[in-house]
């Protein structure tokens, strides 16, 4: 049984975007802080830090999850994908283009999280019914509102049907 003390720094190895990162951190460190401050992947944004805003959403084993609501030490065996990892995927360019063409972002603070959520449903949900508005309800956007984002999603679905 592993037991870490309060002020002890422990070696945590997380696989982020397919690459292992080993860092010495306190057990209380949040995954969002590990990603940003320890690894330096600042594409993941931190808003409310209690699970409401959705800015810090990343993919954990392919499912969207709040990185501010996970302890880094508790994520160890799982695979984390951030926006930087998605940007290297072949399908990313069309998602980026759909968001850009539909004015689905303005300041971009919420965008990395929204793209992670949308990506999870584009990739693994062939044939399954997706409630896109419900998916978007997990993200707060305070500049453009949601119409542009909904339009971007509609474009992406249209492209998928044509393929």
């Amino acid at each position: 049984m592993i037991r870490y003390g309060k002020d002890q720094r422990v070696a945590v190895t997380l696989t982020i975007n397919g690459r292992p990162y080993r860092r010495w951190v306190e057990p209380r460190m949040l995954l969002s802080d590990f990603i940003r401050d320890e690894v330096g992947l600042t594409g993941t944004h931190v808003g409310c830090e209690h699970g409401v805003c959705g800015a810090c959403t990343v993919l954990i084993d392919g499912e969207p999850a709040r990185s501010c609501l996970r302890l880094a030490v508790d994520v160890e065996p799982q695979n984390v994908t951030t926006i930087e990892g998605l940007a290297k995927e072949p399908g990313y360019e069309r998602v980026r283009r759909a968001f850009s063409q539909n004015h689905a972002l303005q300041c971009g603070f919420c965008t990395a999280g929204i793209v992670a959520s949308v990506w999870s449903r584009l990739e693994n949900y062939e044939g399954l019914q997706v409630d896109w508005d419900e998916l978007l309800s997990g993200h707060l956007c305070r500049c453009t509102g949601y119409v542009g984002i909904q339009n971007a999603i509609r474009d992406l679905q249209g492209e998928e049907r044509e393929q």
Binding site: M1, R3, P27, E49, L71
Partner: peptide, 10 residues
């Protein structure tokens, strides 16, 4: 908005 330090047991 960070947790207080705690022991972590697995």
């Amino acid at each position: 908005m960070k947790p207080v330090p705690f022991d972590y047991v697995l």
